[in-house]
Write a protein that binds this DNA or RNA. Structure first.
Length: 289
DNA sequence: TGCAGTGTTGCTTC
DNA sequence: CGAAGCAACACTGC
């Protein structure tokens, strides 16, 4: 569900709430969500008593640096929500900042619940159960994460680095932008928005892009992602932050889930097509093939 | 009613 | 090798 800006918002929120806290208990109703170590019991045993030193992000992965050289990795995939608050297990209820039908549902889909030493909790709610939690040794995790592409908002992700990673690949630009091994953190929403801003058609083959177009895509990556982080992510559907609050980027998205509407730049009708098994939205007039 | 679609990833198949 | 298809799972909307 969440891409880089949403995950960044969650990480910032968690850093404000749970830094220095110690895990005292873990509950699940769905042991399969824990992928590493293999048994949930082992996972629980190893995390209990560990203190949270720092929370950070690599691509769309949320990482809790723990005492004892361990790292807890959480990936929310399509429908995960990582939340902070207090729940009564008897009623499985949560008191989020906003109330509504989604919040009620989020409560029912809580499958992993960490209790902290101040009585607060961190919960992973996930309708489709694609999300995962893993416990790694710090050194092992470093190797695991090294297969990801560069962080697009890092200062050293400059135009040269962008060209270097992009021109190694072949295929359609939209698919490549979403490839986590090429650049980390971009998914369906932001690849659509980036390509609209750069005026590049999602079907364009990498090898046909000229320098001017590459430059525009590079610039759009930085600008769109930065803006989306500022606006705390996109909630066109069910994305929420750790307190249950919506983001604001949906108000200024240009193409994502806007098929049939007029392009704000040229007035043509936004089109939706199938690309690499996903839907892609773009303006057929200002993003010509 | 039934089936395509949904923000992800990784494995299998060709 | 790359590209495509699909599975993991559950719900919504046409």
């Amino acid at each position: 569900m969440p891409e880089l800006p949403e995950v960044e918002t969650i990480v910032r929120g968690l850093n404000e709430k749970v830094l220095g806290r110690t895990f005292i208990d873990i509950w699940t109703d769905s042991k399969k969500i824990v992928k590493k170590p293999e048994s949930f019991e082992q996972f629980k045993k190893e995390i209990k008593g560990k203190t949270i030193l720092k929370i950070w992000r690599r691509g769309k992965n949320i990482l809790f640096d723990l005492s004892g050289n361990k790292v807890l990795l959480i990936h929310q995939k399509l429908t995960g929500h990582l939340l902070h608050g207090t729940w009564s297990m008897k009623h499985r209820t949560w008191q989020p900042k906003e109330r509504g039908p989604l919040e009620e549902k989020i409560n029912t889909y809580i499958h992993l619940l960490f209790t902290l030493d101040n009585g607060k909790m961190v919960a992973l709610s996930d309708l489709r159960k694609f999300g995962k939690a893993e416990l790694w040794e710090t050194e092992e995790l470093k190797k695991e994460l090294s297969s990801l592409g560069p962080e697009p908002l890092d200062r050293d992700f400059d135009f040269e680095e962008f060209k270097r990673v992009l021109l190694k690949t072949r295929g359609k630009i939209k698919k490549i932008l979403m490839d986590q091994k090429v650049i980390a953190g971009i998914g369906n929403i932001y690849s659509d928005e980036i390509l609209w801003q750069a005026k590049v058609n999602p079907l364009r083959q990498i090898k046909t892009l000229n320098k001017k177009e590459l430059k525009k895509i590079y610039k759009a990556i930085k600008e769109v992602l930065k803006k989306a982080v500022e606006l705390r992510g996109t909630s066109t559907s069910d994305y929420r932050d750790i307190e249950g609050k919506k983001g604001f980027f949906q108000k200024q998205r240009k193409v994502y889930r806007r098929e049939g509407e007029k392009c704000s730049r040229c007035g043509a009708i936004i089109k939706k097509i199938k690309l690499a098994g996903r839907s892609a939205r773009f303006c057929p007039k200002c993003q010509k093939v």
